[in-house]
Simulated assay, not measured.
Amino acid sequence: MNIFAEIEGIQYTPFACRTLKEYNLSNLEDAFKKNATFILNFDKNNKFALSWWVSPKRTRSYPYARVYDSLAFQGKRVTVIPVLKDEGKDGDRDFIQWDTISLMSLLGVYVIISYYKEAQKNLKFENKITNQKFDFEHIKQELRAISSYQSDALHWNISQIEKIKEITEKALNSYRKISKKLKVELHSDEEIERRIKEVLTEKNSFINYSRDLAEKAQIRESRTIQPKERVNGQKVQITIKNYLGGYYFFTCDEVIIQNDIIYLIECKHSKRSILPSKADIKDGLLKMILYTNLKNLKINDRKFQHCAILKLTTSQSFDSDRVKKLDFLGKIQIESKQNNFSVTINNLDLESLIK
């Protein structure tokens, strides 16, 4: 089963965003050390809600939760994403994809594509690095440009794509210096050099290459049950087209069809805790932003009405009385009601559970 749907725009009000700490520009590096999302007082006229991604891969370190926490801010929302992250030959290497940037555009988030400049050797592995740090001068330069930028996030993010070749080359040079300084072997340069030559020469080639990788990843994910999922229905590929003709390739954890209604269910599970983590739940809430704004949902050209559900499951030691006292759940309940989706905990409706 493959689901196809469209998104024309986003209408959504978040309620579960955490209160963000404020930092001045002079303390930018310290803010990155202590917070995944924060308010940056850039100058007397500009404040940003700033988040950053540890890796360009959207399945690592809950980047969606970081972005979600910035969405209640009424000014410009900015997220910093490394163009690539190389952890060393004994670790992973991830590269930014077009669909990630396109999704941020849909959410009205300005993307700064940046790169890591410094790192430390991971003492547990011969060829692995850790504590990677961005080039903060580059980030400040881009923030300065955003502060006077008059167009929306979409146009800014397209302009970032036009710089991706240059930024990738800077990232590659930084990693060469890190490798030499720390005497750590990183992944081969050949693939990245090939991407620079063949894929990053112009915007459309990067978009098409990213789309091909995203489709393959979607197929793999649709066949895999993750430890943080407890599902009953069918896991299904869902392809979402935006108003610009861009595509997002996701996997819906669980799909149930009843008559002409299709239930799109995002699942989050915890074996040991009273609930899945806040980061896990916020990751699910970002999917609710997408699912509640879908239009023209079809399966094999047959149209369906749809409902979005965030399904939370826990171990058998689930204590409903303790759950009722969690203030965070009250915010989620308000958010679900305001934005027309449902939340269940161990198959109990959240609204009835916390009454």
Score class of each variant (00 low, 15 high):
Phe38Trp: 12
Asp321Trp: 00
Asn296Glu: 15
Leu40Lys: 01
Lys271Gly: 11
Asn347Trp: 06
Lys303Asp: 08
Pro63Ser: 11
Ala31Gly: 08
Glu137Ser: 10
Ile112Val: 15
Ala308Gln: 00
Asp327Pro: 09
Glu221Gly: 01
Asn232Cys: 04
Gly284Tyr: 01
Asn127Glu: 08
Ile345Ala: 00
Lys133Phe: 12
Asp152Ser: 11
Tyr209Cys: 02
Val54Cys: 07
Ala279Leu: 12
Phe249Trp: 01
Gln150Ala: 09
Leu28Lys: 11
Glu202Arg: 02
Leu312Thr: 09
Ala119Asp: 12
Arg223Lys: 12
Lys33Glu: 14
Ala145Leu: 14
Asn232Pro: 05
Asp327Glu: 14
Asn346Val: 07
Phe4Glu: 13
Asp327Lys: 14
His306Glu: 02
Leu20Arg: 04
Leu326Pro: 05
Ile354Ala: 08
Ala31Ile: 10
Ile257Glu: 09
Ile332Val: 14
Lys203Gln: 12
Glu335Ile: 07
Leu172Val: 13
Arg176Tyr: 10
Gly330Pro: 03
Asp301Val: 01
Leu312Asn: 10
Ser61Cys: 12
Leu40Asp: 09
Lys117His: 14
Phe73Leu: 14
Leu312Val: 13
Glu87Gly: 02
Tyr263Cys: 10
Asn259Gly: 08
Ile238Gln: 03
Ile225His: 00
Leu310Trp: 00
Thr37Tyr: 10
Ile146Pro: 12
Tyr62Lys: 09
Arg272Met: 11
Leu329His: 07
Leu186His: 01
Trp53Val: 05
Lys324Gln: 12
Asn204Pro: 01
Cys252Asn: 07
Leu290Ala: 08
Lys180Thr: 05
Asp69Asn: 15
Val83Trp: 00
Phe15Lys: 02
Leu312Lys: 09
Gln150Thr: 14
Ser102Gln: 08
Leu28Cys: 11
Ile225Phe: 00
Ala153Asn: 03
Pro276Leu: 05
Ser179Ala: 13
Lys241Gly: 06
Ile332His: 03
Asn157Pro: 11
Leu107His: 02
Ile161Ser: 00
Lys278Gln: 07
Ser188Val: 02
Ser270Tyr: 05
Phe250Gly: 10
Gln160Lys: 14
Asp135Arg: 00
Asn45Gly: 15
Phe250Met: 13
Tyr209Phe: 15
Ile261Asp: 12
Leu182Ala: 03
Cys307Leu: 07
Lys235Gln: 05
Thr19Arg: 10
Phe304Glu: 03
Arg60Glu: 04
Gly9Val: 03
Arg302Val: 09
Phe15Asn: 02
Asn24Ile: 13
Lys295Met: 12
Asp212His: 04
Phe249Cys: 02
Ala16Asn: 07
Gln333Pro: 06
Phe125Tyr: 15
Thr292Tyr: 06
Phe32Pro: 10
Val343Gln: 08
Asp212Ile: 12
Val83Ala: 04
Glu229Met: 08
Leu353Arg: 02
Lys282Val: 04
Lys181Pro: 01
Tyr62Glu: 12
Glu162Trp: 00
Asn232Leu: 13
Ala49His: 12
Lys177Arg: 11
Ser205Met: 01
Ala308Asn: 02
Asn259Leu: 14
Lys197Glu: 13
Asn127Phe: 06
Lys128Cys: 15
Val67Cys: 14
Thr13Cys: 07
Phe134Glu: 07
Asn127Pro: 06
Ile225Asp: 04
Glu137Asp: 12
Ile81Thr: 04
Leu186Ala: 06
Arg211Asn: 09
Asn259Arg: 13
Asp69Lys: 02
Ile274His: 04
Met104Trp: 00
His155Ile: 08
Glu137Ala: 05
Leu329Asn: 00
Arg211Gly: 03
Phe32Ile: 07
Thr59Trp: 05
Ser26Phe: 05
Lys271Leu: 11
Arg223Thr: 12
Asp69Arg: 09
Phe95Met: 01
